[in-house]
Computed example of a mutant assay.
Amino acid sequence: METFSTMKVKSYAPTGNRISLLRSKSSPESLFKGYGKEFLDSGTSALSIALQHISFAHHKPEEELPEVIVPAYCCPDLVAAALHAGYKPVVVDISKNDPSYDLEGFSAALTENTRAVIAVNFLGIKERFSEIRSIIGSSDIKVIEDNAQWFPETEEQETLSGDYATFSFGRGKALSLLGGGLVCVKNGAISSSSNAVCNASDDSLWIAKVLLIDFLTMPLIYRWVELLPFLNLGQTKFHELRQISGLSSNRKRRVVANVEQYRQRKSASEEIYIERLTEINELSVSKCRRGRLLRYPFLFKNKDQRDNAYREATYYGLGASIMYGRSLPYIDGIAQLEIDTGEYNNAESFSARLLTLPTHSRISPTDALRLVEIVTRNFERETT
């Protein structure tokens, strides 16, 4: 155990960008022009509303339980949204060394009951939309672009790839309001299928929460916060979606100001990782699919390399994370659900070898370079 004299003096949270308290004169309805929009209490709610909207538009009285395709490496909130909307989640493996769907497995999973596919934008890495649409062909299956981990860096990027697109404004997201979400639909309105009500929560309480989170994620403070066992920091669990409401009015008034702040913010650490780690990264993703990254994903050759690098980076408080830690069927709470699951070798291998590096504004270039050195050294180290 570390002595007090050798303990780390600071520790970075995995995410840590500050939230703007300003109220913009521009309405959030100005975002994503040409899309029907609804602002909700969470990204999970946004996904559920998208699925409900699909059912509302295409439901047949004699139809069996509608199915939605989800990747085997993803947040369990996708399952929560599907179950709340009355869908059967169908789990499909991802590609080798790539968070996108295994296309052969994706094609095999489609049935006459498939109504939607959730295409996850993983940390800023887009799904292979053209390939998915080629497999779907002329069927009426809808593609939901799940952007919980990404937000457009420019106004020009607001042309979306899915029939529906969802965003999350939760803590630690690209655009954070400590909660909230957005669902968009091309060429139509979304609110007709939703009973969501916009709740007017106390503005001063929300501001207090923002200031508290900002304080607790300061590196000199966070090193003590992460020692509290009851917070369960970094643990991924399934949480049932019980109800849906609209985005609170105080958060909605601050959406545009936070979009503007996000787009003005630069990430020196992300540029350092891309420049120095891309050539050795086992992650096989073309540059054209990579947008601005919520965290930098690095894929090691094996689990031992990843675990050694994670322990070392954690020891020095550098904010590294292993994300979900396991493939979807092994996440706490999923096994108890009545979902058909099998073996997803690529997803399980991916989860065992993935380490993500922080890109938020509190990470100094010096500490980003320390992370590069740790990752590089462990990647080159032979393991048994």
Score class of each variant (00 low, 15 high):
Glu2Asn: 11
Ser5Pro: 10
Lys8Ser: 11
Val9Ala: 11
Asn17Gly: 04
Lys25Glu: 12
Ser26His: 14
Glu38Leu: 12
His53Asp: 15
Glu62Met: 12
Glu62Val: 06
Leu65Asn: 14
Val68Gln: 05
Tyr73Lys: 08
Cys75Gln: 09
Pro76Gln: 07
Leu78Lys: 04
Val90Ala: 09
Lys96Ala: 11
Leu103Cys: 04
Glu104Leu: 06
Asn121Ile: 06
Leu123Tyr: 09
Lys126Thr: 14
Ile136His: 03
Glu145Leu: 09
Ala148His: 11
Ala148Met: 07
Glu153His: 14
Leu160Gln: 07
Ala174Ser: 06
Ala189Phe: 07
Ser192Leu: 14
Ser193Cys: 13
Ser193Lys: 10
Leu205Asp: 13
Ala208His: 11
Met218Trp: 14
Ile221Gly: 02
Pro229Val: 03
Val255Thr: 04
Asn258Asp: 00
Ile272Cys: 12
Ser284Met: 06
Cys288Trp: 02
Arg289Gly: 12
Arg289Ala: 13
Leu293Gln: 03
Leu294His: 03
Pro297Trp: 09
Lys303Gly: 05
Asn308Arg: 13
Tyr310His: 08
Ala313Ile: 02
Ala313Gln: 01
Leu318Thr: 05
Gly319Val: 07
Ala320Trp: 00
Ala320Gly: 06
Ser321Phe: 13
Ile322Pro: 06
Ile322Gly: 03
Ile331Asp: 01
Glu348Trp: 09
Leu357Pro: 01
Arg362Asn: 07
Ser364Arg: 07
Ser364Gly: 07
Asn378Ser: 15
Phe379Gln: 06
